[in-house]
């Protein structure tokens, strides 16, 4: 067992669901607790669906790549796609829609980037050679021991992976 997973899916919501159904049992095998798994799944879903929807608005069969690595401070995640760049080459602010407005004015969207920002650290975006690179860490509880730790791999490499 390693603490390093690389998967890809096509740029549509059904394919994202299939990828998550495959990936989540692997993260479970790493020993993440239920709460960490829930956090990871929501953040991964939001980032991958954002790519499918906004980087590839008119294309359901482009490739989206994801790399997840277990590190002592959490899960390091990197995604890559060749779709449209982020507008202004910056990530959305992700303010949470206001829940105190009258019911008929409640926002029905705009929660995605809020949920990502609220549950990640080190969120970074770069556009290099026509490729979108998104990376972040999902902090998980300190009693989480990366599976590969027992295999003697160098944990310092965690912050440098692509």
């Amino acid at each position: 067992m390693t603490g390093d997973i690389q998967l890809s899916c096509l740029s549509n919501e059904a394919a994202v669901r299939v990828l998550l159904k495959r990936l989540m049992p692997m993260l479970d095998d790493w020993g993440l607790d239920v709460d960490a798994l829930a956090t990871a799944q929501i953040v991964l879903a939001e980032t991958l669906n954002n790519i499918a929807e906004h980087a590839f608005p008119n294309c359901d069969d482009a490739v989206v790549a994801i790399h997840v690595r277990a590190c002592p401070h959490g899960l390091e995640v990197a995604t890559r796609d060749c779709g449209r760049p982020m507008p202004g080459l910056t990530l959305p602010e992700g303010c949470c829609p206001d829940p105190t407005v009258p019911v008929d004015e409640l926002a029905e969207g705009g929660f995605g980037w809020f949920l990502i920002r609220a549950q990640t650290e080190g969120l970074a975006y770069a556009r290099k050679n026509g490729v979108n690179h998104l990376r972040y860490t999902v902090p998980v509880s300190t009693d989480f021991t990366p599976a590969y730790g027992a295999n003697g791999r160098n944990v310092d490499s965690c912050t440098h992976f692509e």
């Binding site: 829930a38 799944q41 929501i42 669906n49 926002a107 705009g110 949920l115």
Partner: peptide
């Protein structure tokens, strides 16, 4: 499991 789209749908 629910994501932001599911939450938006309930709203």
């Amino acid at each position: 499991f629910i994501d932001s789209s599911g939450l938006g749908a309930i709203i």
